[in-house]
Design a protein around this nucleic acid. Structure first.
Lengths: 190, 190
DNA sequence: GTCTATATGTAGATAGAC
DNA sequence: GTCTATCTACATATAGAC
């Protein structure tokens, strides 16, 4: 059973990814994942030894998605500034999800920082991937202080996502992303 | 049986506040609170009907703490700009906790936004209190756009706290708070 | 007001039939 | 590979003795 070309393992990871995002890791049970996939609970242990192993696969999936976005930005234009602006446009398109559940990477980090530092380190991998990519773009523009610039941009994005979700304020996202674009323009024109 | 002048109810709330902050709400059990206070699990139900009621009291406690900080800023100086800068200094002093567990209000919001919107609304009360206070300070300075300014400052603080906690980066907090002060100076001098 | 014993549900994980 | 039945641990919550 299961749709063609979609392994049970893959279906579990996709459902877990969705549920971990919407409800949080700790608040998602095997029963929830079973309900969404139709795959019996006990079957999960054929593919994953523990719940943490499922999280591991989910983090890998989120990293892969982030990588695909970065590659897309790179393929669309050779101008590093345009690439960064394009990334902002991509997350801007995820408004609806951000409003409801925040940033998939940020909220996971925040949740795992409490009580499970080992897993949290895994979640920061996605942050690091993005930081490194930003650094490359800023370096290609001949900027100094690329480490700080990258952290600052990421911090702004995270603050925006957190407040937008807390207040369910769509206008705030739009205004903030617009100001973020201006910030990028200004910082990359010196 | 409880230190003098400290009711059992109060001791439960204080322990819960600490544990909810460090481990998260969902990851903190009655057993944990019992272990910290020495008060038996079953006893909690004399003071609170449900676990949610404990959270309610914890949120009230965090709001009360925030209010005391704001009052302190107001009592120290009549200059609204100085008040805002003083608030940044206060949270700057909480670096160690922020590094370990993030912002007590921000992380709680983030956790409760997933799956328990009712409780999350309660947690946003603290955000709203701070926003209103900031608006008052900015208005007293004769600024326009006080709503956006307040949201932007809060968003920056939240982004800083989240990344500092994710990367356990003390230098980042210090640099960012320093830049936040400059931002306040600039915005309030127009 | 305080504490113990316990009810009731559900979590993650395992064993073993098919 | 798939599924059911079940184990053990622990969660919130309740009942009732003291």
């Amino acid at each position: 059973m299961g749709r063609k070309g979609e392994s049970n393992r893959q279906r579990i990871v996709e459902a877990a990814d969705r549920l971990f995002y919407r409800r949080g890791y700790n608040q998602t049970s095997f029963q929830d994942i079973s309900d969404e996939t139709g795959i019996p609970r006990g079957n999960f242990y054929y593919y994953f030894k523990t719940k943490d192993d499922i999280l591991d696969a989910v983090v890998d999936a989120r990293i892969a998605e982030l990588e695909s976005w970065l590659k897309h930005c790179e393929s669309e234009t050779g101008d590093p500034r345009e690439r960064v602006l394009m990334f902002i446009s991509i997350i801007d398109e995820k408004q609806a999800d951000t409003l409801q559940s925040g940033c998939p990477v940020g909220t996971l980090n925040s949740e795992l920082a409490k009580d499970t530092p080992e897993l949290q380190q895994k979640a920061t991998r996605a942050f690091n991937l993005f930081r490194d990519w930003l650094k490359q773009q800023f370096m290609a523009l001949g900027l100094s202080d690329v480490d700080n610039l990258s952290m600052d941009l990421l911090a702004r994005m995270q603050g925006i996502a957190l407040l937008a979700c807390a207040f369910k304020d769509r206008d705030f996202i739009q205004r903030s992303h617009s100001e973020l674009r201006e910030w990028v323009m200004q910082k990359t024109s010196s």
